[in-house]
Amino acid sequence: MIAARPVGVSFGSRQVLADVSFDVPSGQFLCIIGPSGCGKTTLLRVLAGLIAPTSGEVTADGKAVRGPARSRAIVFQDYTKALLPWRTVAGNVALGLEACRVAEPQKSRRIEELLSKMGLGHCAGQYPAQLSGGMQQRVQIARALGQDPQLLLMDEPFGALDAITRQGLQDEVARIAAEQKTTVVFITHDLEEAIYLGDQVIVLAAAPGTGAGRIAERITVEIPRPRSQLETREDPRFLAYRHRLFGLLKH
């Protein structure tokens, strides 16, 4: 379980986040959505422990987060910058395992397992630059899973991908999260993606005046899993959530 207890972040005199509180029970999928510039990525970095909140704190299983940890894996949006270009696909996935000091022969076995789980088995020996964006993002997810994280933090991971690739990866992430009972915090600027993936959706919006991001709305998505790209998106409940949140995302 991860919890934010009124988290506020300021960079100098500029307040970026104000009074953000939420709980994510273990195994839950939380989507955070908001217009660009409302502090989504900052919030994710606070959850990762990469930056310390100016006020309040983040706790993971009751313990305060004081810095980055392997148990909280991050999948960055810009996959081209987050993969090691001099390592092959298998080598990139191995990095997470090396950090966890997984020794041979388990290491090779885990690499193979992760590659096949993410549909990368056929390109183990290729370099990231030789792959499409969707495949590169799969490599990043495989590497993150190799850390065996309790919390998976994903920062607009599919924002740069085309719609078809994105839907395929949405279903895979949902499946893997359910299989491994990983807690996921998923940042997106795509409302339908947030509702489709989330158990809980939090809308961040810039407060009038200060411009600091705060929680404008939160909903619990009560659509059973597994969800389907076709039926779920036509489900009246899905449409109702969409109606409810849509207005909040306009400036």
């Binding site: 990762a48 422990g49 810095g67 960055f76 990095l95 950090a99």
Partner: peptide
């Protein structure tokens, strides 16, 4: 950031 989050 990646290397920090991996606690290398």
């Amino acid at each position: 950031e990646l290397s920090r989050s991996l606690e290398l």
